[in-house]
Design a protein around this nucleic acid. Sequence first.
DNA 1: CCAAAAGTGTTATCGATACACCCATGT
DNA 2: ACATGGGTGTATCGATAACACTTTTGG
Lengths: 256, 256
Amino acid sequence: MAKRLLKYNPHISVDCSVFGFDGKQLKVLLIERNIGGDNEDLFSDKKLPGSIIYEDEDLDTAAVRILNELTGLKNIYLSQFRSFGDPERTSNPRDKNWLERTMKMRVGRIVTVGYVALIKISRKISFESENTTARWYDVKILPSMELAFDHNLIAGEALSHIRRQVMLEPQVLFELLPRKFTMTQLRNLYDIVLGTKSDVRNFQKKMLQIEGLEQLDEVQKNVPYRAPKLYRFDKKKAKSTRNKTRKNKEDVSVGL
Amino acid sequence: MAKRLLKYNPHISVDCSVFGFDGKQLKVLLIERNIGGDNEDLFSDKKLPGSIIYEDEDLDTAAVRILNELTGLKNIYLSQFRSFGDPERTSNPRDKNWLERTMKMRVGRIVTVGYVALIKISRKISFESENTTARWYDVKILPSMELAFDHNLIAGEALSHIRRQVMLEPQVLFELLPRKFTMTQLRNLYDIVLGTKSDVRNFQKKMLQIEGLEQLDEVQKNVPYRAPKLYRFDKKKAKSTRNKTRKNKEDVSVGL
DNA sequence: CCAAAAGTGTTATCGATACACCCATGT
DNA sequence: ACATGGGTGTATCGATAACACTTTTGG
């Protein structure tokens, strides 16, 4: 066993699927990657933001760092959802090449830990940080793009992860909305994420059960129609609410 | 950045939290680890089954291999649930020592990918495979044991992972029961996992909604009381049933 | 006949769904 | 006045929860 271990030099990276909502569509943040140079022709594609973790860095810390390096933001909602370790995931020559030039080292295999990040698209982001160009892309066009590495797979899993999450705790959606938002924005977001068409009244009822979601004495300005009320989600008032169907089975001593 | 990367030699491992059910309690499979020797006194503790992944091995494959090496079994329910990468997770001198002696190499840091495995405790297992001794322990005593590495943490997260899973898809429980089982066994298992006390009749109603769960024309033999009916879960008839409250929102095109 | 556990049905409550009309605003 | 989207309530259905007595079997 030890024999088979000695000869390779694996690395661990973190890749973040960063989602935002522009009011109409769910967006994902992709980085432009330029390959080629040398004698070949230039080639450019997209990848998820990610990086090899540092020597003494926790996984969560690495994810926070990567996002901060990329966007300049702190306090971003982050959640690890799955790791990817297909030994072939970095073996496309294009990827291999890029890795060795970017990291200035031989790279054996890389196991990557996938994170989902949800950010308020309204927060102004300093893209273009040190020679990387990041841009929002509509998630619907993901299937028609060929991302670097296995990032199509990762982004797809990330998406279904947040879908599951939203079904259980719609609260996470507030991470994607501005601090003050209308019920219609919330409903549009919900429906876009889950692919549903919620009934306006039922949706409102359901959402108002969420502790911490409060109606403000304020309406949206400058709309050419009846001004909609604004809402806010106050995390502090929310506590460990969860989606409390059935009297919080969750509470039952998590043992250990 | 490259500088900070070059000097360390990280490894990736897989650790499996293997659960079983003996009819009374939920059990977890732990391996005995012997430390010491040299000039110190012997010391022995427990760890989760796990191993560094091989050079060209996928994560899932590694998990399957580890379980097979340990139990001789194939076709075990396995599910990756989270990775653990605290840089200090292998820094206890006792752990460090053991690693270097076991792996016959210097070990930088190890990021481990956590899997949950569910096995039918009735399947006869060839423990004691090549100098490892595995035994079932009641999960309730986990908090009072000090496992190797961060395995207390990992096992705890594994537990809450399967609890969440069971709430959403009680079907996974069938992985822990013998092929034929009684409704009472199923209910006991359910209640032990979730820490609930289900009503006998309501529970039966709920379970019989699960597609693929069928009553047999057979009863349990050799019981000193009224013989209970036996049930069986037929995976083929189950398909993608899920816990179908609300008309399967899940179905709505997972996009991508 | 006794002990032990199995089996079985009805009612009440709650959450989820379906559904349609009037209101406020800007042009 | 009209076009656009905002706001609101009720009735039905289905799922969950509460609840107790009779049956079978072995000893």
